[in-house]
Design a protein around this nucleic acid. Structure first.
Lengths: 134, 134
DNA sequence: GAATACTATCGTAATATTGCAATAAACCAA
DNA sequence: TTGGTTTATTGCAATATTACGATAGTATTC
């Protein structure tokens, strides 16, 4: 068993008649041990990694303009849920919204989209098949 | 407020002196309202969407051969955690392992990788910038 | 056989995500 | 100003994910 050199804080808790090992940061992703690029790419992919958000993005791209609100009628999700997914895409920087009267229009953020496309091509393309392998 | 046409099962629970609305499928992704392609792509992206798994894949691609076990020493994660991440990549079909003596060697699954690369290019590339938009 | 190395699995703790109703906020129209 | 439309936020319930220690299983080596 190789020992890792990460620093984790633990404490011990007596429950009944046994001690239980408790790590402070359990359940939270350890971003500090990865590079900024790895964390950023993972974060953007996480924003994409939901069928509703993929459907939303496809819908925006297909219509080729801003989308104002029609989303709620088309997907089978509650308005609150769609608003939440839009918020995640907005926070990731993948879409941007502009106020249009009573409604808000969303469209792709061109810069972020191109950058992600490049990064993905770079990542996926860094594999070249060889046959000296399993 | 537009009414969605999805079917959700609810029941009401009396707690204290108030009723609380309980949805049966709370917390679970509604895959049934999306296409297979959308669900599959989301699922694959989910497998990629963690810095540790990106790091693992980069490590495999960089070395250009199978990777047997050295991963545990290099990333700052416990062995059990890395094994869990490898399992997710395996379940997604992105990597494949072969037994090599006492250790197991992992490498990219060429077919799955190429297909995902294509699908991603297709998805990301379906956006073309226009200026009649926000 | 005993000790060592490598991996997977189980159990557990904690956080994150998903989804919805209810409500609030902001705008438009009559 | 009142009512209707659209979006965001809050609060909550339930599931999913992340991480680790402990343990078990398998192969190698002595």
């Amino acid at each position: 068993m190789v020992q890792t050199n990460s620093i984790i804080f633990h404490f011990f808790l007596e429950i009944g008649n046994t001690y239980r090992n408790i790590a402070i940061n359990m359940g939270i992703t350890k971003t500090d041990i990865f590079s900024d690029n790895q964390n950023r790419l993972a974060s953007l992919l996480k924003a994409l990694a939901h069928p509703a958000r993929i459907a939303i993005l496809q819908r925006i791209m297909l219509s080729n303009t801003c989308i104002c609100g029609n989303l709620v009628g088309e997907l089978g999700l509650a308005q609150a849920t769609i608003s939440q997914h839009l918020k995640e895409l907005r926070n990731a920087g993948l879409i941007q919204g502009s106020i249009e009267g009573a409604s808000i229009c969303y469209c792709i953020n061109p810069k972020a989209w191109k950058l992600l496309h490049q990064q993905l091509n770079n990542f996926m393309g860094s594999y070249q098949e060889l046959n000296n392998c399993c």
